[in-house]
Structure formats: C-alpha cells, structure tokens
C-alpha cells in the first residue's frame, strides 16, 4: 500500500498560482472557491529579506483530525492515505472545517464539504495530480513516501525540508524543501 505525499521545492516555486488555476479547471471548483492557494512568507527588514513561497492545500494528514471528528464517516481515508469527503454522507456540520488547522476545507455551494482530493481520479490512472502536472517550474513532486526509490523519498532524503504546523500533531504529508 503506497503512502502518498507531495514534496514542493520552494527554491523553484515562483508563486505563479498555475497550480491553483489548474485545480479549478481540472476539478470544476466553483467560482469563489479553491482547493489550493499560494502563500508568500516574508521575513526580515528592508533590505535584508527572505521569502518562502508555498503552494498549500490539504496535507492529507496521517493523523487527520478532520476524519476523527466527522460524525458521519463522510470524511474518510482511502488507499494511499488520501483523505476524502463522501458527499453523500456529509451533513455540512462543519466539524471537520473547525478541526483542520490548515483551513483546507470549505463548504461547497451544494452543501457538502469539499477539499483537495490529491486528484485521486488521476492518481488511480497512474498520473500526477493536475497541479503537479501543470506547474511551469516543475517544483512539485507527488509519489509514495514509503517507497525509498520514489522521487519524493529521494528528495526528502537529500534536502532539508519542513512541513506546516507540525506542532498541531496532524502529521502532514506535504513537505517543503528549503
């Protein structure tokens, strides 16, 4: 069983938001909503500045509080550790939204809660997620974190990296290379 994750090279990423736009068309995300977004994180004072640019989305947490708190089982984990929402089971109680420290979820206009699916429809066909495929700087990598030969594993092994809000204990599976 694979354990899917993403490794994003912040050195390459220019924050162009192509990943955001591609997700919208690939997944027909309604106007006004998004499953991924870009953060510019600037530290320092002029002229000694440092900026990290991150493409962020659901972290498909290993220890997913959104799944734990869901009263109906709508939020669940499938193959490869991908966290999904079953629209038919969702009541729109929003407990999972409150539970997600990354604010990765939203209420779809049709009433159910929605978020990044890691493009499971593509992954099942052996393709990369849409955002990964489109990224003009090729800074995103998707693959099996448990497979030592996968690109993601190799990158994590060879380069320093960090994940978002590890203190929250969710064990996120998206990693950012410095």
């Amino acid at each position: 069983m694979p354990r899917y994750g993403m490794v994003i090279d912040t050195k390459r990423c220019v924050g162009c938001a192509d990943c955001v736009v591609a997700c919208k068309t690939e997944n027909n995300v309604p106007e006004g909503y998004c499953r991924d977004w870009i953060v510019q994180d600037v530290q320092g004072d002029y002229p000694d500045l440092y900026m990290e640019i991150r493409s962020e989305r659901c972290n498909h947490c290993e220890n997913a509080p959104c799944v734990r708190c869901c009263p109906t089982g709508a939020s669940h984990i499938v193959e490869g550790g991908i966290v999904l929402v079953d629209h038919d089971l969702c009541t729109g109680c929003k407990a999972c939204i409150a539970a997600c420290p990354y604010d990765a979820r939203y209420v779809h206009p049709e009433g159910y809660v929605d978020k990044c699916t890691f493009c499971i429809h593509r992954v099942r066909e052996g393709k990369d997620p849409a955002c990964v495929e489109v990224c003009p700087t090729k800074c995103m990598h998707f693959g099996d974190l448990d497979d030592p030969r996968s690109e993601v594993s190799k990158l994590l092994k060879s380069r320093p990296h960090h994940a978002l809000i590890p203190e929250a204990g969710t064990e996120p599976k998206i990693f950012y290379l410095y």
Binding site: G15, I38, Q43
Partner: peptide, 12 residues
C-alpha cells in the same frame, strides 16, 4: 517583520 500573505486571492 513577518509578512504572511495569501497571494492567489483565496477568499473562501
């Protein structure tokens, strides 16, 4: 200074 900005217009 620490500026954290979402620059892709997210406004959920």
């Amino acid at each position: 200074m620490h500026e954290i900005t979402i620059t892709s217009g997210r406004n959920l």
